[in-house]
Amino acid sequence: MCTVCGCGDTTVEGHSHGHEHGHGHDHDHGHDHSHDHHGHHHHGAHGDLHFGTGPAGVSVGGMSQERLIQVETDILAKNDAHARTNRARLAGLGAYAVNLVSSPGSGKTTLLCATIRALGDTPLAVIEGDQQTANDADRIRATGAPAIQINTGKGCHLDGHMVGHALDHLDLAPESLVFIENVGNLVCPAGFDLGEDCKVAILSVTEGEDKPLKYPDMFTAARLAILNKTDLAPYCDADLDAYEANLRRVNPAIEVLRVSARTGEGLDIWIAWLRAQAGIKALRAKSAQTQAAE
């Protein structure tokens, strides 16, 4: 298992003050939000976020009588509530959010930089998740796009709460594309809804054709898989058809694109795919607004 997933020390760039708060108490600081989670997050340079843990307990007075309470609550209910809030916020803007998931080193950030350049003046923003460093957000900002780095500390995935904070720090234009680059990990991010419109899994051709079989949950959760680094396929005897067959074995409904972020091969189809999805969402948002106004 991952040691301290989701409850490590997390930072967000952009604020110079830190604050701590525990369970179930009101706290008085400059942010207009409430927290269900415990621990603290620290706001660093550029608005990047750092989340952390702190043991906190509540003492509860009360009666004593052995009894059974029907709970029937999803363990991740709180995350799902944060995700719903994020989703409503994005829907209000007609913004389309993609949760990019993969193992470390599949080329997510390079693909993202190439994607941003190819999208030209389309309004967009990037949320970067890593355990440590703001290197990826720096790479994105070098393209001119706004980016917020979230450092999860020991955490192995982004959660809905962290992404909500990152959205607070991004001044999203209506109908923006929002790219959320999750922590490189093919296991945990599959279970955490961030409020995104879809997950896109990136799989590089150097990783082995059976990777979808080894980590089926992530590829089952993804709507699209990008088979990246296709320019390297001849050098590592990669069988691209076998990759696709294994992807469809774990998720018969998945779409697959073959791309090389380095050479630009296949990038035009990925861009067209993104524009189509985002365009549909923007039209739906407009239509909902029109109906609400009538």
Partner: peptide, 14 residues
């Protein structure tokens, strides 16, 4: 998976 996170979620619900 992310069993520590799940345990945190259980604690919060408790």
């Amino acid at each position: 998976m992310h069993e520590m996170s799940l345990a945190e979620g259980i604690r919060s619900i408790v």
